[in-house]
Structure formats: structure tokens, C-alpha cells
Simulated scan of single mutants.
Amino acid sequence: MPRTIRCQLDENVTIAIADGLRRRGIDVKTTQELGLMGATDEEHLVVANSQHRVIFTQDDDFLRLHDAKFNHAGIVYCQQQRRSIGEIIKGLILIWEWLEPEEMENHVEFL
């Protein structure tokens, strides 16, 4: 299956996750790289959607936006301090390996 999901990391996600994904060939952008430091969650989703990127977050406000039917390219959510950095990277790699961008549209995956 083609690996076409592209990722965007929310503001509070450690850069180690971006580094781990990049070492495996996954296209990922951080909040800092996108110039979104201090941006609202809605702005993060708008940028991610415009670039067809699935956003990884540990902020449950994104779940509220999803429930409010805010359009997005996909959200991957993990509760803070629930998983190690390695477990998060493995979970994101699985999503990248098995799902297509259209399967993630307006969909939430939980790690």
C-alpha cells in the first residue's frame, strides 16, 4: 500500500517524534517549521488541511473541534504521558503504513 500520509505535529509535541518519523522517510512538519507558534487550534487544523497533513496532538481541544464538525485532513490523538516517544512513533508509523489520506479525512485515530 502506498505510504502517502503526511504529518503535522502540534505545538507541544517533542521534536524527537519528528526526528523519529523522518528517519523512517515520513514527511512531517513541526509547528515551528510552519510558523504556527502561538496559533489557535483552528489555525493549526486549517494549515494542516490545506497541506493535506494529518495532525498529531496530545491536546483534547482538537477532539472538541472534530466533534463540532470542523473540517480536517485527520487527527491522531494520544493522551499526554500515556505513551512513550517510541510508542507514539510506532503508532504513527502504523497509521502511515496502513491508511491512506482519504481514510483519515475528518477521522480521529487514537494511540
Rank of each mutant, 00 (worst) to 15 (best):
A73K: 12
L21C: 06
M37C: 04
M104L: 04
R22P: 02
Q81A: 00
T57Q: 12
A48N: 12
R3W: 04
E43I: 03
T57N: 06
Q8F: 05
D67Q: 11
S50R: 08
D59L: 08
R83S: 07
L92K: 06
R24V: 07
I26K: 12
D61M: 08
E109V: 14
T57S: 15
L63V: 03
L45F: 15
V47M: 11
V54D: 15
D67E: 10
L45K: 15
H52Q: 15
P101E: 09
K90Y: 07
S84K: 02
E11W: 01
F110D: 06
I89V: 03
T30Q: 09
Q51L: 15
E42P: 11
D59W: 07
K29R: 14
M104T: 00
E42G: 14
P101A: 04
S50I: 01
T14H: 10
C7L: 15
I17V: 15
M1C: 06
E87W: 02
E87H: 04
G86F: 00
E102A: 13
L111E: 04
H66L: 02
D19S: 08
I93Y: 05
L45T: 15
L45Q: 15
G74C: 09
R53M: 05
V46L: 11
V46Y: 05
Q8Y: 06
Y77L: 06
D27A: 14
D19A: 13
F62E: 12
W96P: 09
I15V: 05
G20N: 05
M1S: 11
D59M: 09
I89M: 02
G38N: 06
R22F: 04
D67Y: 10
A16T: 09
L9K: 09
R83D: 03
E105C: 03
W96Y: 11
M37E: 10
D60Y: 08
Y77K: 10
E43C: 03
I88H: 04
L45A: 15
Q8T: 08
C78K: 04
G38C: 08
F110G: 01
L65C: 03
P101N: 02
S84P: 00
K29T: 07
H66E: 06
G35R: 12
C7N: 11
I93W: 03
I75L: 05
P101S: 01
L94K: 10
E103P: 01
Q51K: 14
W98N: 03
R83E: 09
F110N: 12
V46F: 07
R24S: 13
R22M: 04
Q32P: 00
I95M: 12
L36M: 14
L94G: 08
L111M: 08
Q79V: 00
I85S: 00
H44A: 04
I15N: 11
D41F: 05
L92P: 07
R82C: 00
